[in-house]
Simulated assay, not measured.
Amino acid sequence: MRVAMVTGPGRTDVVEVPTPTVGARDVLVKIRACGICGSDALYIAIGGLRDGHTPLGHEPAGEVSQVGNDVTDISVGDHVVVNPMVAPSGIIGNGGASGALADYLLIEDAVRGESLEIIPDHIPFEVAALNEPMAVARHGVNQCRPIPSDKVVVFGAGPIGLGATIAFKSLGIAHVAVADLVTTRLEKALSVGADAVVNVADEDLVRRLIELHGPGESMYPGKAGTDIYFDAAGAPSVINTALSAAKRGARLGIVAVHKEPVPVDFLSIMTNEITVVGSMGYPDEIFEVTRDIVADWEKYALIVSHTVAFDDVDEALRLASTPGAADKVVVTFP
């Protein structure tokens, strides 16, 4: 079978390897779609995460092709999504022994609801492949402890920001605004359920939030009534803007990766008793979000901007790593 691997700094190759042997407690999945993550570009740039070649791909969806004798509740032909974090041989596509940018993926010690989950056959594989990144978004949302009466602004209308928007609305949040610089992304945010959008290229964000969410209580004037500021953009200006706009008791959730230290106004945090919470991965959300994808798959489908066949995986990786070229690239398999 074929596997896309990092073979050196800045270099990837499709390598032929033996198809895995299925043990009694294992399941073999024929990969039908696998998303490209920003971390893949990092692994390529640094030459991988392990000695020798590093298999890529941690956002898979596929079809079960073989089932070990001791595995229950999973059958050949089932369509599945995968939890890459629990593989005994290391995190799939993140330094582990296997990656999902491959024809087949062995799920060791397969347990439904822990290592993989079945999805209905009508869900397109390229949408199902969003399960892993959408779990990242859902965990970030859960970290903010939202309640239905909250008013929210999501910074960044990329895949994670859009996934967070869908998650907030699926939890019944009263009002969700999305802020971004790109008009087409903001249009997509409205399509997936945002109540309002703010183009920060030509609008004053704080003034717009006050219009949308009302004024906020604070010892200082000019604060917005927004309850949750959700950073899915990763720009230092987001942190500064959120803290300058935040009312007493507001929450700032950070799921975006900030590659450089960001100066923080601790006086605003202290005087307005702002809660700042980080988010990493998905301790419990990997299959929680599956139910939401199944229920609202047409909305999630809007997040995928490009599908590229595995035969052209080099183009898919290039496209995903080129700033502004694509929002979400998913590699598809026959």
Score class of each variant (00 low, 15 high):
28 L>M: 06
60 P>L: 13
57 G>N: 01
75 S>W: 02
80 V>E: 09
85 M>Q: 09
78 D>E: 03
56 L>Q: 09
45 A>F: 01
24 A>P: 06
30 K>N: 04
49 L>W: 10
87 A>V: 00
37 C>M: 11
89 S>P: 00
64 V>P: 01
59 E>V: 14
19 T>Y: 00
22 V>N: 05
55 P>I: 13
57 G>M: 03
81 V>R: 02
66 Q>G: 01
87 A>D: 15
20 P>A: 04
25 R>F: 10
76 V>I: 15
46 I>P: 00
90 G>S: 11
89 S>W: 09
74 I>R: 09
60 P>M: 13
54 T>D: 04
84 P>Q: 12
55 P>L: 05
66 Q>C: 03
48 G>E: 02
84 P>M: 12
19 T>Q: 12
59 E>S: 13
37 C>H: 14
74 I>L: 15
64 V>L: 13
37 C>Q: 12
28 L>G: 01
38 G>K: 12
72 T>N: 13
40 D>G: 10
85 M>C: 00
61 A>R: 02
25 R>C: 04
35 G>T: 08
86 V>G: 00
83 N>V: 05
88 P>K: 06
34 C>N: 15
39 S>A: 10
55 P>N: 01
22 V>W: 06
78 D>N: 15
64 V>E: 14
59 E>T: 13
37 C>D: 09
83 N>F: 05
29 V>Y: 03
40 D>M: 10
85 M>W: 11
82 V>N: 00
42 L>R: 15
81 V>H: 01
35 G>M: 10
55 P>M: 06
61 A>F: 04
73 D>F: 07
73 D>W: 03
70 D>I: 02
63 E>V: 15
87 A>K: 04
53 H>M: 11
40 D>F: 10
46 I>T: 12
79 H>T: 05
38 G>A: 12
20 P>N: 07
45 A>Y: 07
80 V>S: 08
23 G>V: 04
33 A>K: 03
50 R>G: 12
83 N>C: 01
31 I>K: 01
65 S>I: 12
75 S>G: 01
52 G>L: 09
23 G>K: 13
31 I>C: 02
66 Q>D: 08
19 T>F: 01
23 G>D: 05
54 T>E: 04
54 T>K: 04
79 H>L: 04
52 G>R: 05
39 S>K: 15
65 S>A: 14
75 S>K: 12
89 S>V: 08
40 D>C: 12
38 G>M: 13
89 S>R: 14
24 A>H: 09
51 D>E: 15
27 V>E: 03
69 N>E: 14
44 I>V: 15
23 G>R: 15
47 G>P: 09
42 L>W: 14
78 D>M: 06
20 P>L: 07
24 A>L: 06
29 V>S: 05
68 G>F: 08
27 V>T: 06
60 P>G: 05
61 A>T: 02
34 C>L: 05
82 V>Y: 01
85 M>G: 00
49 L>P: 07
53 H>W: 07
49 L>I: 11
85 M>P: 00
25 R>E: 13
26 D>Y: 11
62 G>P: 00
73 D>I: 00
61 A>E: 02
53 H>D: 14
66 Q>N: 02
48 G>T: 03
24 A>N: 07
64 V>W: 11
80 V>D: 07
49 L>K: 14
86 V>A: 01
80 V>R: 04
39 S>D: 08
54 T>R: 02
22 V>G: 03
47 G>R: 09
56 L>F: 09
80 V>W: 08
60 P>F: 13
79 H>R: 15
30 K>G: 07
